[in-house]
Design a protein around this nucleic acid. Structure first.
Lengths: 188, 188
DNA sequence: CGCCATACCTAACAAGTGTTAGTTATGTGT
DNA sequence: ACACATAACTAACACTTGTTAGGTATGGCG
């Protein structure tokens, strides 16, 4: 049932998906939903939390599975790829989260915040580690970089089309920009 | 009246803003709105279009006002700053656009597309120019870069807080990443 | 003054929303 | 066979939504 709801939210956004619509696609009647859940907010919150946890797990796994002597660039690429894969490939929950977070009632957003913060902290600690190691430039602010990274990655949801290229290729493209920048190196 | 609507849409999103709410804040009654507009969709579309046109104008002006011999980096920084300024500082219409585009009915989104495409084309032509000039790396795909750039910039709307730093400083931070990347240069 | 367009108001409409109470079918364990 | 939990259904509720029809002030112009 949650699967159905997550898919609908991802496809149509929060406002256009009523309980009756979810119920219909799930093959039951609207009232019956209240046997499984206490309210619409509860459903939405479940989906939001599950969405973050899915990306979080994917990203954490990707980072941890790197060799001990892996370079900062390799680790970063793995994390970016994992995030994008969860978002665009694996999980309706993750994509639903990104799509509808800005549309749900404030109370639901607040309830989702702790889970969200936990994922953000994972990124912050990764980036801080790379910075202490000397690979990441000392003058970049970790919080800003994390916001920029996740923001840029999440935005792909709005236009990504698997027919035009793989998630992995897209991840490499994005990583290239973040790692090396887009301008030709000048002889200063 | 449109000003009021744009502000409410920016603040609360599409779904939570009813005609009655707009009317109330505007100091009239709901029915009276139909003297000025034909439908809610018409209002929303006006705001969406005006939003894009505002960023477009700001960005174009910023680029055109650069000296003829300005470097690619300087031009790029000006464009980025202009986009962010329109979004975070100047125009409720621009911010409303970014915030609610994904929430409005498909028909409204479609109607807004031409205006949107025109702005995208402006970026594409700028980036293509820089690439032909040799400043922008030859192997970056202009379309992808534009999607990434605008996506990253638009995402700032969700968290930017003027109390924590100026728009201009943020623009420089973002430009730094795009131009030079985030990793320390290595001796290969 | 009367005429008329402008700008608003009131009151209702049909449709859709989340939610609840009470009821019914379906199997499982004793 | 009976009891019981599970999982559904029906039908209604109170409310909000975009929208419309018809009425009412206001003020400028001949």
């Amino acid at each position: 049932m949650l699967d159905v709801a997550a898919r609908l939210f991802r496809e149509q956004g929060y406002g256009s998906v009523s309980l009756r619509k979810i119920a219909q696609v799930g093959g039951i009647k609207a009232g019956s939903i209240y046997y499984h859940f206490g309210s619409k907010d509860e459903i939405v919150l479940s989906i939001l939390d599950a969405g973050i946890k899915a990306v979080h797990a994917e990203m954490r796994r990707a980072v941890l599975s790197q060799a001990a002597d892996a370079s900062a660039e390799v680790i970063l690429r793995a994390a970016i790829t994992a995030h994008l894969r969860a978002l665009l490939d694996v999980s309706d929950y993750s994509s639903a989260n990104v799509r509808i977070f800005g549309q749900v009632p404030q109370s639901v957003r607040d309830a989702n915040l702790p889970t969200r913060r936990s994922y953000e902290a994972e990124w912050d600690s990764l980036l801080a580690r790379l910075q202490v190691g000397g690979a990441l430039k000392q003058n970049v602010d970790v919080r800003h970089l994390r916001l920029m990274l996740i923001g840029a990655l999440n935005a792909t949801l709005e236009w990504f089309d698997p027919a035009r290229g793989s998630v992995e290729a897209l991840a490499e493209t994005y990583a290239d920009v973040f790692v090396h920048g887009i301008l030709e190196k000048q002889d200063v």
